[in-house]
Amino acid sequence: MSIPARTQSLPDVAGDQAQAARLLDWVGMARIALPLQVEAGEGGPVTVAASADVGVNLVDPDARGIHMSRLYLHLQDALSSETLGRRSLHRVLQDCIDSQRGLADRVQLTLRYDQMLRRPALASGHSGWKSYPVEIDAVLGPDGLALTLAVAVEYSSTCPASAALSRQLNADRFARDFDGAAPDVEATRAWLASPRGLAATPHAQRSRADVRLVLADEVEAFPVLALVDALEHALGTPVQTAVKREDEQAFASLNAENLMFCEDAARRVAAVLAADPHVVRFDATVSHFESLHAHDAVARVRG
């Protein structure tokens, strides 16, 4: 069935005068589906599914509305043909402002997607994929372009207090079992390797570091991979992908070497971000989803 051609222009009531005239800070759309081309490490750029919020300020108090469909159409394919970066975002955002024909002088674009990174196992030589949620906030206005990058990293946290209490119980059981005797090395090793050698285990839990960074003006590409690597190295116990028995044993060893309260984790994260010359400001939150308590332990730090 064909659609007959229109011989008359279509009405556009968005151009009518507003009844209660005033400026608006943000008008736009949320959760637009978009393809993005993002850097994925040594394999080069890849296309990912993303969600976008885009909006402009309405600087004409008498205008009833903005040209919303123009924002949508400008975004649909603009970020799928080249790797996401400062230059590509600046061009797209400027096009969005220009499309409003004087109705706006500021645009804000928020992009959300999952960055898939292949991570090696600790000991077995295997590897697996892990998903990292990424959010990019780009604002273009009279003062220029401002970029904010947010990433979340999951890790394991073992409680130092619980570890100390567990060690005390292990020591007390050892003293009772040997009752003043002086066991040799082999007897002690056999006891430690037996069920008797583990009187208690410290509690640990999956945890998450959420970081939000204001990037310096000279930063062109979004350093997602470098940021994830630095944070996981500082925390010491990133959540794993492929796990064989030798990997699980290595992970248990890392947890023993990296006992952390949420305060400790927050300081480790802050040290990484404060030392990064590409970061102007940062806001970090670490959350330990407690296995002992029904509530979470949380620490926040800015710099």
Rank of each mutant, 00 (worst) to 15 (best):
L89F: 08
S88G: 14
R70F: 05
Q100G: 01
A52L: 07
G65S: 15
L75S: 05
T83W: 09
Q100K: 00
G55Q: 07
Y72A: 13
T47S: 14
G55T: 08
R101W: 01
S80G: 13
V107W: 01
Y72T: 08
I97N: 01
D62M: 12
A78L: 01
A52N: 03
R91F: 02
Q94G: 02
R64Y: 09
P45H: 11
L103C: 06
G55N: 03
R86A: 08
L84Y: 05
H90P: 00
L58T: 00
S99I: 00
G65R: 04
V92T: 15
R91Y: 04
R70A: 14
G43A: 10
V107M: 00
A63T: 00
H90K: 11
N57K: 00
G44D: 10
Q94A: 10
D60L: 07
G44N: 09
G65Q: 06
A49T: 13
A52R: 03
S81I: 02
L79T: 06
Q94L: 10
Y72K: 08
D60P: 12
S69F: 07
H90N: 10
L75Q: 03
R91V: 00
Q76M: 09
I66C: 13
M68L: 14
D62C: 09
D105E: 13
G44C: 08
H67P: 00
E82G: 08
Q100Y: 00
M68I: 12
S51D: 11
D77Q: 14
G44W: 12
G65E: 08
S69G: 13
H90L: 13
D95G: 10
G55Y: 12
Q76L: 12
L103Y: 07
H90V: 03
L71F: 12
S51Y: 06
G43V: 06
D98Q: 14
V54C: 15
S99A: 15
D95M: 09
D62G: 10
D77R: 12
L84D: 05
D105R: 03
V107S: 05
A63N: 03
L71V: 09
D105T: 02
L58P: 07
A52K: 03
V92I: 08
A50K: 03
A104F: 04
R70T: 07
S80F: 04
P45S: 14
S81N: 12
S99N: 06
L73N: 13
S88P: 13
R106A: 12
L79P: 13
G102V: 04
D98M: 06
V59R: 15
H67Y: 13
L103H: 06
R70P: 08
A49R: 12
I66L: 14
R86G: 08
A63Q: 05
L84I: 02
R101D: 14
D60K: 08
M68K: 05
N57D: 15
P61M: 11
L84T: 05
C96P: 00
A52C: 09
P61V: 11
I97M: 01
G55A: 05
P61T: 11
L58D: 05
D62V: 14
G43S: 12
